[in-house]
Every structure is written in C-alpha cells, then in structure tokens.
Design a binder for these strands. Structure first.
Lengths: 150, 150
DNA sequence: TTGTATGCAAAGCGTTTGCAGTGAT
DNA sequence: ATCACTGCAAACGCTTTGCATACAA
C-alpha cells in the first residue's frame, strides 16, 4: 500500500516546478525548504518510486550524475544540450531521426540518446560578460531564467 | 621525466589489443596477466596519463562507467552502440551529421555524443536468450558481468 | 493498531589520493 | 643515487541499505 507523505509530495513538487532536470542533491535542497530534516536517502528512495510510477524521468548524460525531470515535460521524445561553459542542461525538442540504418549488419536499433555540447545563448553572447555570468550560474548547476528553449 | 614501466606497457597493450572499449576493471584484469600484483590505482593513474598523452580515448556512455579505447581506433569521429542484452559496446563508424541546426536560437553546437541502443548481431540472432548468452560469454572479453535479467 | 516511509549511519561502488617503499634512469 | 612510479589502504562523492522510530492508513 502506498502512502502519501510530506516528503514525497515535496520531492515531487520540487521536480515539477523546475524547468530543467535536477540532481538528487538539488532536489534535496529544494524540497528541504518545505520539509526540514529531509534526508538524502529519502530523496533517492522516492525518486526510485517516482520513476517506477513513471511520474519522473531520469536524464543520464555521459559522465554526469543522473538528473530528474517531470515526466510530463519529458513525455515526448527529446534530447539535451549541455553548455560547455556553464554546464547547464537544456532540452532540445528536435531529433535527427532516421538512425536505424546507422547500426552494423545484424544490429537492431531500439532507441538512441543524443547530447549536444556547445555554448548556450548566454555564454555565447559576450566573451567576458558571459564568462562572469557563467561563473555565477555554475554554482550547483543553477539555472536562472533560461530554460526550455526551442 | 617520464619513465617506462612494465605496468604502463601492460596497460597500454591491454587497451590496444582489445577490439572494444574496456573498463578500468577489465584493463586491470587483462594487464594483470602480465604484471601480477598490479594495483587498480596504478591502472587509473596510467589511464590518466595515457589520455593526456592522447594515446587513449575515454568513452563515456550515459549511466555507464568510463571505458577506454586505443586512440588510433578512435581517431576518426564515430559513435557507439550498446547492446541492451549483453551490455557490450561497439563502435559505429557512421554519423547523422548536420546537427548544428538542432540547437535553439543563439546556441552554438561544438560537438555531439550519440549512443544507439538495441540488440547486437549475436543477441539478435537467436531469439533464444540462452543462445545469445552463450555466444556472448564465449566472446573475447565477454558480456559484462552485469545483472540485467532480460 | 499496523506496517510503510523516514532519518540516520554505515556500507557499496568506482575513482582518487597519501605515503612509504620500489625500481628505472 | 635520484626521484618518478608502484602498491596498499584510506579517503571521496554518489547512491543504496539496515535498523529502529515515526506517522499515514
């Protein structure tokens, strides 16, 4: 039997109100604002259930710790763009498609994962100005006002 | 000043003789055949130098530990295919290209990472999982010791 | 009341680092 | 003889798990 707890509610709310994939640590920080004494273990346990319930989607980029985003936001096929300067991750609602024939003989492609790397609009704007902004934003992958482009 | 050691030689040899990206653990196992008492720390330290020397290339797939492959084999742009059954990783010498325009306004794409998932020729051949498993286990550096109860 | 969910702390796993000893030069 | 490299073990960061308690039902 599944129970509704303040913790789970806060965790789910944290994910849903974010417009970008959050790390477990970020979710802890965010949800802690509503549930003090919230433990990281509880976050992980709830993330696991939320993923099983398909309410949350895991975003795994190469070499990065998993991030979690609301499944409603991830319900359609999409990819990600990570800025090599500020490390922020953005959704890319586009897809090259047609990758099935890329595989060697006898291989069957079921799905694919694509990550673009480069400079986001902010970091690309001005060299020095962007660098400063990036530094500020680099803190635990904080994403201020820019999300979900496209 | 850089020194030539039995350890580094064995590690480099292990990577170069493999036909697929190897994990640190696999490299340890392979190189240990030639240098007993080889420690995992030494493997990691040498991998780091080999990567710096650009003799070895790191393959980071989403959610996977880093794998290492000879840089000569990775000198041209390519991608990877991971079998969802046996977990092995294969090179894909093809690329959809033309991804620069996928990014949102103001974003500049510098590079990209693509991973295909599906069934490799072996695992796809016999619908029988047993047959696939047998073949995989027979293969050079076999099917990851991972779980994944297909 | 009942037993799931929680918090804490300890354990795991992969990787890194400190340190004293080994060995290539 | 040097001093970079090695092996061991401890440290690390992230995630999971054990266990006694708290709280939703």
């Amino acid at each position: 039997m599944e129970r509704t707890t303040r913790q789970k509610t806060a965790i789910q709310a944290a994910i849903e109100s974010a417009q970008r994939p959050l790390s477990a640590q970020e979710i802890l920080e965010q949800a802690s604002l509503q549930v003090t004494q919230l433990g990281i273990a509880t976050v992980y346990r709830n993330l696991k259930s939320l993923v099983l319930e398909e309410k949350v989607h895991v975003v795994t980029l190469p070499g990065e710790n998993p991030r979690y985003e609301s499944n409603t936001a991830a319900n359609h096929h999409h990819h990600h763009f990570q800025c090599t300067t500020c490390q922020r991750v953005f959704d890319v609602h586009d897809c090259p498609g047609d990758l099935k024939r890329m595989a060697p003989q006898g291989f069957v492609v079921e799905r694919h994962e694509l990550t673009l790397y480069g400079r986001c609009a902010d970091c690309n704007a001005g060299a020095s100005a962007a660098a400063a902004a990036a530094k500020a934003a680099t803190a635990p992958h904080a994403c201020a006002s820019h999300h979900d482009p496209a």
